[in-house]
């Protein structure tokens, strides 16, 4: 779901005049209106001086727990591939209990936490895998 301080009328016109030209049928998720930055304030991303929500992105799991967040100032856009990678990593962890080392991509080796691995990570993971 997306959130900005704009009204639903603005969301509607943006969807109709621009977003639907980028994504066939328009974006498929609710575009929430955050009047007065009420929701942004709850999440610590409302800039009171500018009167807008900055680029905050939160991954919330099926239990309603915040698993990850990223907050950027307005000039720089996000990386959707990284978002999807993080969602897949958390899903894999919740399913298997395994943990994902730095640079992990779906299908790549994971680590099984436990006393046997302590001090031995260097044997199975090298810094070049972080990139």
């Amino acid at each position: 779901m997306s959130v900005s301080v704009d009204s639903n009328f603005s969301h509607k016109i943006w969807q109709e005049t621009e977003l639907s030209k980028m994504v066939e049928g328009g974006v498929p998720f609710p575009m929430i209106t955050d009047a007065g930055g009420r929701i942004g304030s709850l999440y610590g991303v409302y800039d009171q001086e500018a009167g807008v929500d900055v680029r905050g992105r939160f991954i919330i799991d099926p239990e309603g727990i915040v698993q990850a967040m990223e907050v950027l100032t307005p000039p720089v856009g996000r990386n959707v591939s990284e978002l999807i990678r993080q969602v897949k990593a958390y899903q894999h962890h919740q399913k298997t209990g395994e943990v994902m080392p730095s640079g992990w991509q779906p299908g790549k080796p994971t680590l099984k936490p436990g006393p046997g691995l302590a001090g031995k990570v260097w044997e199975v993971w090298k810094p070049d895998k972080a990139f």
Binding site: V3, V52, V54, R55
Partner: peptide, 15 residues
């Protein structure tokens, strides 16, 4: 939306 993975995405403004 409990029971589903959810992404909440704030942005400065439409357009």
């Amino acid at each position: 939306h409990k029971g589903k993975w959810l992404v909440l995405c704030f942005y400065p403004g439409d357009f």
